[in-house]
Simulated scan of single mutants.
Amino acid sequence: MRIYRIDHIGQVTSDLESQVELLERLFGFRPIRSWDDPAGGCRGVRLAVPGSWGHAWEVLAPSGDDSPIQAYLDDHGGRPGLHHVAAEVPDLEAARSALESRGIKPTGGVPGRWIEASLSPPERGPGVLFRLRGPGNLGMCGDDASDAAVARSALGPSLGIVALDHVCQAFPDRDELARWYADLAGFVQVWRTPEDEHPDMADLVLNIPGSSVCWEVIMPRGEDSFIERFWDRNGAAAHHVTFEVADWDAAMEACAHHDTPTFGENEGSTDGAAWRDTFIHPKHTGGVLVQLFWEERPGVWVRSDKIPPDA
């Protein structure tokens, strides 16, 4: 199966207007399209992510009497959060065949237009939900028959995001999942930490061919790992989404301006170039754990000397 572009990250909420305002105000996202599709059970807003060519963020809320979005929220205790990652494939039926040959059965979609499935190994239980569509089709959530969203002026300083960098998934064995994604969709491993670099985790990063968005896999190690606890609650779910910011101090000032605390800050220097990263808790983002990073020079936050050697 070939993926040639990540289109958007989909988030669900019961309060569409408040979530869109938060993404405009703090994150600096720009609404570009809105829709209401009662027949499909969904209304939503598509927002452009600053600096990310062709990447968007979609916020989905229930609409109509029989809404799958409402069913999803009910199944998750009403909690908002990340719903899916949307990608384009050159041949939708070939993608379906590739999934089914590996025991992955699509769980939703519209024949000939888009399909929905977890791409994780099925024996490990449901993982991150992907929505796959053919080229140029915006019909996955009803946003092909939409009204243009009215862009509002900026509501104070924003984070200064310049890129959607990666999505992170928790999994018990990082190499097992890396091999799976490489076989399924050609993901290429580009970075990994040594097994013993961190006391409670190890990770690796995969490039998604055709996309500037990467895929991180984190696995637990040692006793009482936070990833083990996350896995016990959520299984092979998305752990966080990471954005790059242009100016660290300005991003932190924006958080303070909007009464948004951060936690888990790290800083360092690689070959004389500084880098920093931190997290924003899901309760301040509408249900998604967000990581922010800044680097003085490209490539110093994710070390190029940790690219795995050729087999």
Rank of each mutant, 00 (worst) to 15 (best):
R102C: 10
R5F: 07
H55C: 09
L155T: 06
L16I: 08
I227V: 15
I6M: 07
F29S: 01
M140I: 04
S158F: 11
A254F: 03
C141L: 10
R133M: 12
H240Y: 04
E17A: 13
H84S: 13
D143H: 10
N207Q: 11
H198Y: 15
R174I: 08
D277Q: 15
G10V: 03
A238T: 15
I6N: 02
R96Q: 15
V302E: 15
L164I: 02
I218N: 00
R229I: 06
H84C: 06
I227G: 03
W35M: 08
P199Y: 08
G134R: 07
E244G: 01
G77L: 14
D91W: 13
A145F: 11
H240S: 01
A94N: 07
I9F: 04
I280M: 02
S153N: 08
A238G: 09
G81H: 04
S101L: 11
H55G: 06
I280H: 00
S304C: 06
H240Q: 03
I161A: 00
V167A: 08
F171P: 02
G112N: 13
A98C: 09
A48E: 15
W275M: 03
W35P: 02
I161T: 09
D249P: 00
A39K: 13
D37M: 06
E216Q: 08
L92E: 04
V162S: 12
L177G: 01
D147Y: 12
D183C: 07
G127E: 06
L22I: 05
G10H: 01
W301F: 14
V12W: 01
G64Q: 14
S52R: 03
D173T: 05
D165M: 01
S67L: 05
W57K: 00
A145D: 12
G51N: 05
P80F: 02
N234E: 14
L292E: 00
P31D: 13
V190M: 13
P282F: 06
G268P: 06
R102T: 09
V59L: 14
S52H: 04
A48I: 04
F226G: 10
Y181L: 07
D259I: 03
R113D: 07
P309N: 10
E197C: 05
E216H: 04
H284N: 13
S63M: 08
P38H: 14
V167H: 01
G210I: 05
Y181I: 04
A56Y: 11
E93V: 09
E58R: 01
L119W: 14
V188F: 03
F263V: 04
I280T: 09
D247A: 05
E267K: 08
S18F: 14
F279E: 02
